[in-house]
Design a binder for these strands. Structure first.
Lengths: 193, 193
DNA sequence: TCTCCTATCATACGAACGTATGAATGAATC
DNA sequence: GATTCATTCATACGTTCGTATGATAGGAGA
């Protein structure tokens, strides 16, 4: 599983061969077929294993303490935490998106969970007068989630020796994302909160 | 080229075979080798062909009229225009990012151009007092560019029959992105501009 | 000790891959 | 009309792919 996860993330579904995975895992070539039935089944298992903890984390934040702004910030931080702990995960999410096909069930479930929790936070934030009016919760949700995902991924890409993000720490990136999202959503006059 | 572009975008580099591409293009199997030399050379040609117009467009916006806020908005709209006219492009950009390897030269050039132009806009916006203080231009640039990319891609994914973005038009998506970015960067008190 | 049963192993199979090769084609040049 | 030359075409090569198969191993339960 660990090898599959890394190689699928790095090279995509077609690019990661069963041979490469089993060799990396120091297992026999037949191991995938025996334990999972097929390469595709292994892939689905990996995706589910990657996304399930994210769903749990998101649900926990949503049930957590604080007002809407606190919980929004916690949501962004939860994404960062999750993506930092699982360096291969963003690639998976983007591969799913980039493929453009109907997403497989665990992806669909994760999208539904995240969007649902964000919509609740937005609604509460508007009710409390903490947030600006939000015209479309789904679009705003995408805008918010885009921050951790894009920043982590692109940050990795631009963080190289000569890249524009060279030397920028993970903490700085997270604080930037939180500030950016907060600023975009908070109602003018509530900035102190 | 057109077939290669579509199939590379849809299935990734490894997932799109020369046979599939040439069949789709109603060309001979040998056409790729003859005209480009190898599959990899074809891929590089496709990436360059996809990114070059984007670089031109970004440069044009940066040289265009208006204050920093106008040009920032124009930049976001330019991305939407570009991505709408080239439906396969976002996948390419994300595949490059997801692969995590050293980006190939056209990608590197595009990143440099976009980030550079955005940094100029930010600096001018701060100087004019139109923008909030921007702590890190590169991070803020990523946050801005994440909007069109993520919204177009995820919008496609969530726009299905039962998706949360079903029925949301391209125009609404673009207006949302412009508003989101504008709100996140404009200095309080300048909202009327 | 013998019997299961699960797991690992080496190996084989057909299909699909990227690439190479030489013949056919057909418009341009003389 | 003959020649040239850039393309197209059918086909072949060796490799790698996902999967299937039968042998082997080794601990658990009788």
């Amino acid at each position: 599983m660990r090898s599959a996860r890394r190689l699928f993330a790095r090279h995509g579904y077609e690019g990661a061969s069963i041979r490469a995975i089993t060799t990396d895992a120091e297992a026999n070539l037949g191991a995938v077929t025996y334990h999972y039935g097929s390469k595709e089944a292994l892939y689905h298992a990996v995706v589910e294993a990657v996304l399930e903890p994210l769903r749990r984390r998101v649900a926990a934040v949503s049930a957590g303490p604080g007002n809407a702004l606190d919980r929004l910030e916690a949501m962004v931080r939860a994404f960062f935490e999750q993506l930092r702990e699982n360096p291969d995960q963003p690639q998976f999410m983007l591969q799913q998106v980039a493929a453009g096909n109907d997403p497989i069930p665990p992806v669909r479930a994760t999208i539904r969970t995240v969007m649902g929790e964000l919509a609740r936070i937005f609604a509460e934030g508007e009710r409390e007068g903490l947030f600006r009016p939000i015209e479309n919760a789904a679009l705003t949700g995408v805008s918010v989630i885009a921050q951790p995902i894009q920043l982590i991924l692109v940050g990795r890409l631009l963080g190289g020796e000569a890249g524009p993000l060279h030397g920028v720490s993970d903490v700085e990136i997270e604080e930037h994302a939180v500030r950016f999202v907060r600023t975009a959503l908070i109602r003018p006059g509530e900035e102190g909160r």
